[in-house]
């Protein structure tokens, strides 16, 4: 119940683009409803309810994503542009994401997925555009990062530390602004068993486990997971996926990338498709599947890719 209250509080804060607050409250109750985490087909229960009652008065500001106007947008990017030299890595990305959504970023290698995620974190600074988080600009606002958990693609960790020391350090650095403390994953991955090991000596998979634990540790409202299951053994990958589902049920916003579409199929409510820095579409899973007439994400995406070629 704690979570429910928490979300109501944050919803009262101004939301970036105009959205009716009456419908917000309605949505919250639905989204934050504590469910016993089911393991399959969460997409059908989540997402925006069909035939949502109220239309936002200024919905013309949010033209592209019909249906999304009824959800309170937590994370908004507005015409985000990033250029590395001559290469446009992100080209005018405008997207709005809400609590309770699990957004999969899909796209070929080099399509800008990681750069987009790093922009959200402020690790890469956009050349143009805005990122708003609950109505506040993310740019030059490091304090907002206390509400985000990030698991990088390759967990790059300081070489000279032991695992336990790393956890102590991050805990020490983030104390005071923690939402709470969540050691589910630390227990599930049995981090205590290797907490005396030097980070340099860890295998790739173990590093990923450490990275995952760090991302979930402070019970953040937004989880950014870049290829979370890559390198993990099947058991650990399953543990992580279950954890993601649990957090999604709690009404958190989750962004993730993966090249294993079947993983995303289980986890996500929305798909954001990037290609060469451009966002081709942002759609809910139901819409996507209905539109393509497929029941599997793999087939649906293949379908879309064929059409766009």
């Amino acid at each position: 119940m704690n979570h429910l209250n928490h979300h109501k509080d944050t919803l009262l804060q101004p939301v970036g683009l105009g959205v009716l607050s009456s419908s917000n409250t309605l949505q919250t109750v639905e989204q934050g409803h504590p469910q016993v985490a089911p393991l399959q087909a969460p997409a059908l229960e989540q997402g925006h309810p069909q035939g949502a009652p109220v239309q936002a008065p200024n919905s013309e500001q949010i033209p592209r994503f019909a249906g999304m106007t009824t959800t309170p947008h937590m994370l908004i990017t507005d015409s985000l542009v990033k250029q590395f030299g001559r290469l446009r890595v992100l080209d005018n990305i405008s997207v709005q994401m809400a609590r309770g959504q699990a957004v999969s970023l899909i796209g070929p290698n080099g399509s800008g997925k990681t750069t987009f995620l790093k922009c959200l974190l402020g690790l890469v600074l956009p050349d143009n555009g805005q990122i708003t988080f609950d109505g506040e600009s993310m740019l030059n606002n490091p304090a907002l990062r206390s509400r985000i958990g990030y698991m990088p693609q390759i967990s790059r960790l300081p070489e000279n530390m032991r695992v336990g020391q790393l956890f102590d350090m991050i805990r020490d650095l983030r104390k005071g602004n923690a939402n709470g403390y969540d050691d589910d994953l630390i227990k599930a991955f049995d981090v205590a068993a290797f907490s005396n090991k030097n980070l340099r000596t860890l295998s790739g998979g173990t590093r990923q486990k450490v990275g995952a634990c760090l991302a979930f540790m402070f019970d953040p409202e937004v989880l950014i997971l870049d290829e979370p299951t890559a390198g993990l053994d099947p058991v650990s990958a399953e543990i992580l996926k279950e954890k993601v589902l649990v957090e999604k049920q709690k009404g958190k916003l989750i962004l993730l990338t993966s090249h294993i579409l079947s993983d995303l199929d289980e986890l996500s409510t929305h798909v954001m498709y990037l290609n060469e820095g451009r966002m081709l579409f942002f759609q809910s899973m139901e819409d996507l599947k209905a539109q393509t007439g497929e029941t599997k994400l793999t087939r649906a995406i293949a379908n879309i890719m064929k059409q766009s070629l």
Binding site: L121, L123, P142, L144, R156, P158, E159, L173
Partner: peptide, 17 residues
């Protein structure tokens, strides 16, 4: 240069650059 990983990890935390 060796601390690049460390710095990246810190930069993803709520700390000022």
């Amino acid at each position: 240069y060796n601390a690049a990983d460390f710095i990246e990890l810190l930069a993803a935390q709520p700390l000022k650059r």
